[in-house]
Nucleic acid binder design. Structure first.
Lengths: 163, 163
DNA sequence: GCTAGTATTTTGCGTGCGCAACTAACGTAG
DNA sequence: CTACGTTAGTTGCGCACGCAAAATACTAGC
């Protein structure tokens, strides 16, 4: 019963497995590179990038958690490292003593710029040598529909807060 | 200079970030599900799946390492768990005492079948409710060109060995 | 046979992160 | 203003895994 669905399921499984493997391979490579060249992990980089694009170079931990797809505890550990490195500072919220902001420091902006030079180039190279413009946009579009991916670049649809 | 390339780089970065986030979100979900329902991780499942598709339900650790995109040490730890659970047995190679095979046991096949029922359904559902046939195939095809993804389903292009 | 070089696997150590439980602070209801 | 539920963040614990170094076994040259 239902051969068509079975086949679609197989393709889905294939896509998932390939995403898993591609992630494992690329994450390992990029992590090693970032660690060797800049002493940071992929998520360190991503956090700095996210902060640099945020309104006042700052984000609530909860927001960071959603954007970077980490649990709250993961964010705590991540920021521990960034705070210690001096790339991020702890900001408090006047109206709500529970929330604390992660604020990008000058050192952090500097470090990000520095790391960006090699890292984004490496990423760009890896993708552009495998895909042309059309394919790349198609890939980005398709990936954007997966869970977690949409929240990633939702850097400009939030308002309010800070009351 | 090179605005076009810059833009292409941006798209590449976006694709990469989305892949990262999608992986984080989906891996977290599926891991929790597999753990709760079957007491295994995604990689446990993937290893069993790979073994079940291998010629004699067995694979050299090195091969498994390449297919599943884990370092050799990762494979050792992974198989430690599978051996202890009784889903995989240790096979020796007559011609080369260095290599040891991971052999899928009956219990392992059983467990895989059991886990497959819920897990592949969950994966299939997640993908098919977001993509139609054409998109799904396009996604799988594009992902297949990324590093590590090609090796994933190279289950039938190897010969020889076992001499 | 003995030594050098390479391939396979394991182990010590460190790290990143999820889960569950906890604390602290806010909001609302009485 | 006390009580309860909710939200933000932290911490103890455990696990998965990478790296580097080791042990073992194969291979080649002498």
């Amino acid at each position: 019963m239902s051969q068509v669905l079975t086949d679609q399921g197989t393709v889905a499984l294939t896509a998932w497995v390939r995403l898993l493997r591609a992630h494992a391979a690329m994450a390992r490579t990029f992590n090693a590179q970032l660690q060797a060249e800049h002493g940071m992990t992929i998520n360190d980089f991503e956090a700095l990038l996210l902060l640099s694009r945020a309104p006042d170079q700052q984000l609530k931990r909860v927001e960071l958690s959603e954007r970077i797809q980490l649990t709250p505890s993961g964010v705590t550990r991540l920021l521990d490292g960034l705070l210690e490195a001096g790339w991020v500072a702890k900001g408090e919220c006047a109206s709500d003593a529970r929330v604390s902001y992660a604020v990008l420091t000058d050192a952090g902006r500097d470090k990000l710029a520095q790391a960006s030079r090699t890292h984004t180039a490496a990423v760009a190279q890896l993708f552009t040598e495998r895909f042309d413009d059309t394919e790349l946009e198609a890939l980005a579009l398709l990936l954007g529909r997966l869970p977690g991916a949409a929240e990633a670049d939702a850097g400009n649809c939030e308002v309010g807060a800070a009351d």
